[in-house]
Design a protein around this nucleic acid. Sequence first.
DNA 1: ACCATACATGTTATCGGTATCATTGCAAGT
DNA 2: ACTTGCAATGATACCGATAACATGTATGGT
Lengths: 357, 357
Amino acid sequence: MPPSSPKATMRDVSRLAGVSKMTVSRVLADPGLVSKSTRDRVMKAVEQLSYVPDRVAGSLSSRRTNFITAILPTLTNSNFADTAQGLAEAMRAADYQLLIGYTMYSLTEEERIIRAMLARRPDAIVVAGTTHTKAASEMMLRAGIPIVEIWDAPEHPIDHAVGFSNYEVGRAAALHLLSLGHRRIGALGSRVDCEAKDLRGEARLAGFSSVLREAGLSSELVIRENEAPVSYDHGAWTLGVLLERAPDVEAVFAVSDISAVGALMECHRRHISVPDDLSLMGFGDFDIARQCVPAITTIRIDAKLIGKRTGELLLSVLDGETNLEAIPTVPVNVGFELISRETTAPARTQAMKKPRF
Amino acid sequence: MPPSSPKATMRDVSRLAGVSKMTVSRVLADPGLVSKSTRDRVMKAVEQLSYVPDRVAGSLSSRRTNFITAILPTLTNSNFADTAQGLAEAMRAADYQLLIGYTMYSLTEEERIIRAMLARRPDAIVVAGTTHTKAASEMMLRAGIPIVEIWDAPEHPIDHAVGFSNYEVGRAAALHLLSLGHRRIGALGSRVDCEAKDLRGEARLAGFSSVLREAGLSSELVIRENEAPVSYDHGAWTLGVLLERAPDVEAVFAVSDISAVGALMECHRRHISVPDDLSLMGFGDFDIARQCVPAITTIRIDAKLIGKRTGELLLSVLDGETNLEAIPTVPVNVGFELISRETTAPARTQAMKKPRF
DNA sequence: ACCATACATGTTATCGGTATCATTGCAAGT
DNA sequence: ACTTGCAATGATACCGATAACATGTATGGT
């Protein structure tokens, strides 16, 4: 076996084993179809030539690529990385390969990526979010493959959906802070009037604001600064903005734990005691939120589970055993859970407050 | 244009435009080759049919998939996610698509993934690390495509390499702590006698230990606990192990900032003052290390740059303009940089120490 | 014996593009 | 006017697998 000879093809294997190409194909795809003796002969030839089948050719012929495209805002956010990993693991057993694309939170970039991805003829599309450009939605529909929108709970999914309601997450956060007796309540998010926008974070802010309004509070302390994605710096910076606008703010919700951690560290630097002077909560249940001192109150969503559920859903749709029409198009809701830790505490009466300087 | 008709092929486009398939192919691949009038006609037909070319067929025919496989331990580590993103961005302009695989720090898993990936006929392989199973190395060599080993500086790369010396990183860390006057010095790493092992982290520990030995110090405080990957919990836990073994330890190097942060938080919980009671440093310059209070001394490597450089290298190799033999196979070293922040401080004399209880 | 049946294998025709070479027409060089 | 050369396009042959159907050979029921 010469080291750099042109790669062996199925034809070469078949000749060496003294069978037809088709038999080789069967041995590799479904060994049970071939008698043990020929099978052994074929496998020996495969080894001798160190043959690696060409899935490109196979895909063209079978019209199945075993590719799943996953379109996410970024992999730099550990939550999305978890989802990708969960999805990849769920699909791996069935030999599916993930094609990952980053949109950088831009819808036009998303459209570009979807176009490029569809040329690879994936067997399904997984896309974060429920808002897409018109062209992007049309392309996905026209592709004639299963589509799963994840990380939100759309009222009218294009096809399938796996996620949770970001709006309700925002509401839960506000209700929690209200229930602790706080009245001067703010939030930290990013701007949505630029190319890169975190629409799911915005949905959380919207839910948050709705509760404030219902409680008769103003939502003027809901801060939107900087472009997505949020970062530790974002949290530190926007907390500063908030404190300038309202030095007497009592409680803050950050759209992401990353922001919350940044805000917490900023509090440490400014010698603002959390939760004594300020209650703080985040979203996402990132590892760091649990490890921080004090540990950050957050809303947990199981990002990996979103990937896993999506994978399971896709496998059942793609295996096609079950009647396609029989599979529910009802969005899968993985839910969320508020985890109260050390950064939120009941409001103190005015008298208890020590002056902040 | 019926919404769910079978997808249009190049043949359909050519008929509608009244030209041959080949002309359509040219319009899409290199428009300059076709006269403006035909080009316009073809483009109109493409739009009308909302034709999306089939890259599977194209790849089979042209023997170029425009796939690059990137094999990394995990995407959950933001350093590797950065590298992936840097690589993806560098290759995107040339229309390459990344095929990402996770090994979970297991070499046998790496082999499995390499085999599966090669069936997709990538145009190049990028793989983290320089240690592979024999079979894996052979497969990669036999594939006859460029191979780039990243994240380390091998003496004998299979083909190309882009990274830095983890061993030297470890040495730099130890030298830094020694230069501050510390003598009771420890390190936090993970075990290498299990399936999932962080070999690059181990290289850092090896470099670290070598300096300790040269300084006449024992390396018994170099702790290896838990399986890779390290985590905040890992740092917190192993710091506990270290303190039990040596309550008088003065300085600690963690193989990752993630571990270092975990250790720092554990110090907070135990009311150990950093850096007064204990100097602490990490590796990787993760965002969180900079944001922590106190900010963590670390060794910065530019993970995204590794991806970018790898991409640039590959583009020059793959474009084949330049003579293949002319491209240097000398490993690209992106270097590293020690960033001294607030968690490391000079050793105090015995008298200054307050008792730890 | 005879035919139905299942099992093991082979044959042929694609899948949807691109590489390569062939053809045509026309402007420029001599 | 005649080659030469280039620009624009077409015809044909693959790329390397799988689907679908065809064939041949044992097996068994009656």
